[in-house]
Amino acid sequence: MNDVLNQAIVSGILIGGLYAVMSVGISLTWGVLKIINLAHFSFILLGAYVTYQLSTTLGWDPLIALVIVIPGGFLAGVIMQVFFELAKVDEFQSLIISFGIFIIFQSVTRTIWTADFRRIDGDTNPYESMSFFVGDIAVQVATLIAFGVAVAIAIGMTVLLTRTYFGKAVRAIVEDPEIARAYGIDVRRVAVLLSGLATAFSAVAGVFIATFQSLSPNMSFGWFGIVFPVVILGGLGSTVGALGAGVIVGVAAGVATTEWGPLSASLVTFLILIAALLFRPQGLFTRQSST
C-alpha cells in the first residue's frame, strides 16, 4: 500500500516536469507580455502530432523531431506576437482571439489526423516502454527526460533573465515598459522574441507527450485543467515557479488517482487552482510585488 503511494509520488514528480514544460510558455507570455495565449495548447498538440508524423512516416526517433519542432514553434510564436502587436490586442482580447486560434487548430488537427487515437509505433519509439527500477519504484524514462528538460528550461531561463541584456530588458518591460522604452529597449522586438521562445517551449512539451501517450485532438481540452493551476500556482512569468508548481500538481493528481481513482485528479487540480487564486494569487514562488 505504501509502495503504491510512493510510486504515485515519484511518477507525479516526474510528470510534473512535463506539466512545467507545458505551462512555461503560457506563463511567460501572460506574465511578461500580458497576452493570455490559449494557442499555446494548439502548439503543444501540433508539436505532438508532428513528432508522431515524423516518426511514423520517416522512422525518426521521436526526440529528433525537436530539430523541426523547436524552430517551428519559435516561428509560430513570432508570427502570433507580430499579429498581436499589429492588432494592438489587450489582455482580455488576447484570451478571446487566441481561443479562436485554438478552435481553428483543433479542427485542423482533426482534419489531418482524424479523431482516432494515434500512437508512435513501438519500433520507432524506444522511450515508450523504457523504464528502470529504483528499489520497488518504477521510473519511466520518457518522463525522466521531460523532467530533465523542465529543469534545464528553468535554469536556462533564470540565467537568461538575470545575466543577459535580453533578460534584463524582459524584466524591465514587466515593471515599467514606458521607461524601458526610454532607455533604448525595443519593446516590440523583445516581445516577439520572447513569444517565439515561449511557443517553442510549448511545442517541445508536445514532443514529450508523443513519446509516451496516445494522441487525439481532444486531449488538449484536458490540459487546461493542468496548465492553469500550474501557471497560477507558479506565479505568472516564473519559470522556476512553473517547475515547482508542476511538481505539486503532478504529485497531487497522482496521489489522488491512486487514492480515489482517476476522476478525482481533475477535481484536485481544480481545487489547487481555486486555492491559489484565493490565497496566493501572485503564485507560491514569486515575491509579493512591493512598490
Binding site: T162, K168, R171, A172, E175, I179, A182, Y183, G184, S289
Partner: peptide, 26 residues
Amino acid sequence: AIVPEGRRLFPDLTVTDNLDIGAFHP
C-alpha cells in the same frame, strides 16, 4: 536621457541591473 518624475526605477531589479538598462542602447 531622462530621469523621470518619481524616479521610476525598476523596483524588482537590482541596482546594477537598473544601471545596465540605462546602458542598453548599443
